[in-house]
């Protein structure tokens, strides 16, 4: 090709593709913006039900939970996020029985691998999707999941609806805001 012609055709093809690029941004200028506006959209924000944020232990109206303090979650946790402490209590029949003292979970250390929830034999713990967890103080991230004065549920009656538990693939109703809020207040461990 004639070098002179090449010089100018080079300029024009370059200009042509530059204009192609400009056109893309120009179209984008008038499109609807995709930005989701947190926190303005807090009321309408839909976080996926399966999103794992905070581990919690559902308590029913009698302040009873399902944790038997077996410690399987603690054993299975890959990095020691969960600490379960238990007391041996004698029941009426004189048999010794393990009772949950504290179920401590460290929000700031958890890797959200879901093993604890899957392996829990009594379906006592679940993840909720309350993602607002930032704290000023590291110790505030260490939660005690069982509420003060709560005890083990005797029989499997009046179960709260079982939230999603891995392989079961069921959909869940996301935990009520109120419940988590209450939970936070109780999760003070010095």
């Amino acid at each position: 090709m004639n070098p002179f012609f090449k010089y100018f055709s080079g300029i024009f093809t370059a200009l042509g593709s530059l204009i192609g690029g400009l056109r893309v941004t120009w179209r984008e200028l008038w499109r609807k913006k995709v930005t989701m506006q947190y926190p303005e959209n807090r009321d309408t924000l839909q976080i996926s039900d399966r999103w794992r944020s905070e581990l919690y232990m559902p308590h029913d109206e009698n302040n009873e939970h399902a944790c038997t303090a077996c410690g399987i979650c603690m054993i299975n946790c890959p990095n020691g996020t969960i600490t379960v402490t238990s007391n041996m209590v004698e029941n009426e029949e004189g048999r010794k029985k393990r009772v949950l003292d504290k179920h401590i979970w460290d929000y700031g250390m958890c890797t959200f691998c879901n093993i604890c929830v899957i392996t829990c034999p009594s379906d006592a713990i679940f993840f909720n999707n309350d993602f607002e967890g930032a704290m000023f103080d590291r110790s505030k991230l260490v939660h005690t999941l069982n509420k003060p004065g709560s005890k083990l549920r005797e029989k499997k009656k009046n179960l709260p609806p079982t939230p999603l538990k891995g392989e079961k693939g069921a959909t869940i109703s996301p935990p009520k805001k109120q419940e988590t809020q209450q939970g936070i207040d109780d999760k003070k461990v010095s």
């Binding site: 941004t25 984008e28 200028l29 913006k33 995709v34 506006q37």
Partner: peptide, 10 residues
Amino acid sequence: AFFQSRLGPN
């Protein structure tokens, strides 16, 4: 921001 389909400071 508008070119990048964002909103920019608001």
